[in-house]
Design a protein around this nucleic acid. Structure first.
Length: 298
DNA sequence: GGGCGGCACAGTTATACTGA
DNA sequence: TCAGTATAACTGTGCCGCCC
């Protein structure tokens, strides 16, 4: 291969198609003479005349006919290599995209994302996966196309890109008719209540405990759960209170006997971001999907 | 590292050759 | 005679080795 001029593959391909030296040359942007020289080099390379003269042009030898299909296949492969990147056509695409997200993120995004897929990309499937604490490695391994997670305070690892999806505020969720919650919830009632702590990684503490600590207060965590979506069900059937993102709370208030109230202390909200790997950054299909996720989050 | 000369090679023009 | 291919002579370009 090191000594083979791959331009000769183009010449051989054109000669096999045209069976006419002058026309083959024109097709390649060469003069008849240059094409004849190239044919001479091909003849030396293969040790075979490859084409014999006729009144109409050139007829391929048995060896040239033998080469026809491999040459065409090579041309097709090269064409695929050098062809400009094709745009992503959602309507005809048949593939899947995967999102790594906590159940909270999936709950917020999946319904609207699916709605868009059904509308614009009926043969595109969606795979939701649990998000790892080290989602950058998940993305680097190719286990997910995008990850949806709260913004990180530390610097992103090399090769990971991100963009904000939405900001979320915290609200409290209690059962309807809760004896301690009338119009709203005051600090004394709140600290006397039993709380549900959502701890995806199983670690104690969180934004509520930090805010209470600043006031010299504490709360009792009666139940710690690893999933966001379990907490509203627990609250609906007990006197427990849970502090969760407003999107989840408001959605469950429509389907469970629970009500949303503002917490009695100021809690900092949080930003949810979408993360993806650098190698997918310019991929038209991935760009389309990230746009769909952004729209679903909006 | 840059300039220079020699060399190889692809391509061009002009022309010779071939077969119907 | 004509359409088409092959070839001689030449040109332009790129590579390589040598020298400074």
């Amino acid at each position: 291969m090191a000594t083979v001029d791959l331009n000769l593959v183009r010449v051989l391909g054109a000669l096999l198609d045209e069976r006419h030296l002058t026309r083959a040359g024109k097709r390649l942007g060469l003069t008849q003479s240059a094409t004849s020289h190239a044919l001479g080099r091909l003849r030396r390379l293969f040790g075979d005349p490859l084409f014999v003269r006729t009144s109409r042009g050139l007829d391929p030898t048995a060896r040239a006919q033998e080469l026809a299909e491999p040459v065409r296949e090579a041309m097709r492969a090269l064409d695929r290599c050098f062809r400009a990147e094709e745009p992503f056509v959602a309507a005809s695409a048949a593939r899947s995209f995967s999102v790594a997200a906590a159940d909270y993120g999936s709950f917020v995004l999946a319904p609207k994302l699916l709605e868009r897929l059904e509308r614009e990309a009926p043969n595109v499937d969606l795979w939701l996966r649990p998000v790892d604490a080290s989602f950058a490695e998940q993305l680097a391994r190719g286990d997910a196309d995008v990850a949806v997670a709260p913004a990180r305070s530390d610097e992103l690892p090399a090769g990971i890109r991100s963009r904000p999806l939405y900001r979320e505020r915290f609200v409290c969720l209690v059962r309807k008719g809760h004896p301690l919650v009338k119009k709203g919830i005051d600090l004394a009632s709140w600290t006397s209540m039993r709380h549900v702590l959502i701890a995806p990684r199983g670690a104690p503490g969180g934004v509520v405990d930090e805010a209470l600590a600043q006031l010299g207060k504490r709360r009792r965590v009666a139940l710690a759960v690893p999933h966001f979506l379990l907490a509203p069900h627990v609250v609906a059937g007990s006197d427990l209170v849970v502090t969760v993102g407003a999107r989840v709370a408001e959605a469950f208030a429509e389907i469970l006997p629970v009500r949303v109230v503002d917490p009695p202390v100021k809690l900092p909200g949080f930003e949810v971001r979408m993360y993806w790997h650098e190698r997918h950054h310019r991929d038209p299909a991935q760009q389309w999907f990230r746009d769909a996720v952004r729209e679903a989050a909006g």
